[in-house]
Write a protein that binds this DNA or RNA. Sequence first.
DNA 1: CCGCGGGCCTGAGAGC
DNA 2: TGCTCTCAGGCCCGCG
Length: 277
Amino acid sequence: MPELPEVETVRLDLLPAMEGARIESVVTNRADLRTAFPPGFGDRLEGATVRALTRRGKYLLAELSSNEVLVMHLGMSGSFRVDYHGRSRNPDPYYYARDTSERHDHVVFRMSNGATITFNDPRRFGFMDILSREALGERRGVGQLGPEPLSVDFDAAALARACRRRKTTLKAALLDQRVVAGLGNIYVSEALHRAHLSPRRRASTIATPAGAPRESAVTLAAAIKKVLEIAIAGRDGDRFRVYDREGERCPTRGCRGTIRRITQSGRSTFYCPVCQK
DNA sequence: CCGCGGGCCTGAGAGC
DNA sequence: TGCTCTCAGGCCCGCG
């Protein structure tokens, strides 16, 4: 379920359990997630202290006292559980349940502060990797991320520049983590709706030929920030305005349109054909 | 280089 | 009940 806001929420949940604590033990219950664990996975983590737990796009980064970085990605279905007082739901870390969701508990960290952190991921699209600090920027994925949408680096000018020569749709451009980091299928639909821009529109149309931001780029950059901020703050009231709301009335004030669902590059897009141009 | 389709996995829900 | 089918909030690879 994780796009930027969910990953940020996971980070905040993990913070008290991880930051400043030493990793006492690591158990992996299988040889791979999406990819194999790096060589010496447990040995490289055990004994290290987590100096900081940060986030870049949808990636969680545990910066270690060993000067290595533990990179964690939740894929589609990854989640973490934290249990305190040295007690996990499964007292035996090697226990591998077969008939409950616990059979997808793939990694268990025991921390010096008594926390037990369990990574669960049924579909195994998530992964963990360990890299030196310097190698981070070179790694495919994390190394190629565009600006953090909630930082000052991300604004209409940056967005326009990134979209300038894109012949794809706005939908595809915003899903591309090199354009902006952290948006996924839900928040792209939400941001475009808030900005009243059609997901089918060519990405390059938000920039002038010279690459300068048009008004639509200003609106879209602001909408992206807004949608993510609201989601992180957990203002649940109007969680998703269009996502998974095919057939419902468009929530835009004064708009009498109906939310439609279309498929773009194999994935669902929800939008209002009336107010999104 | 760019854009698209397919593949990777399992589980939930719909329809028969 | 149980089967089959579709779909799911991510990402990478290979093809044209």
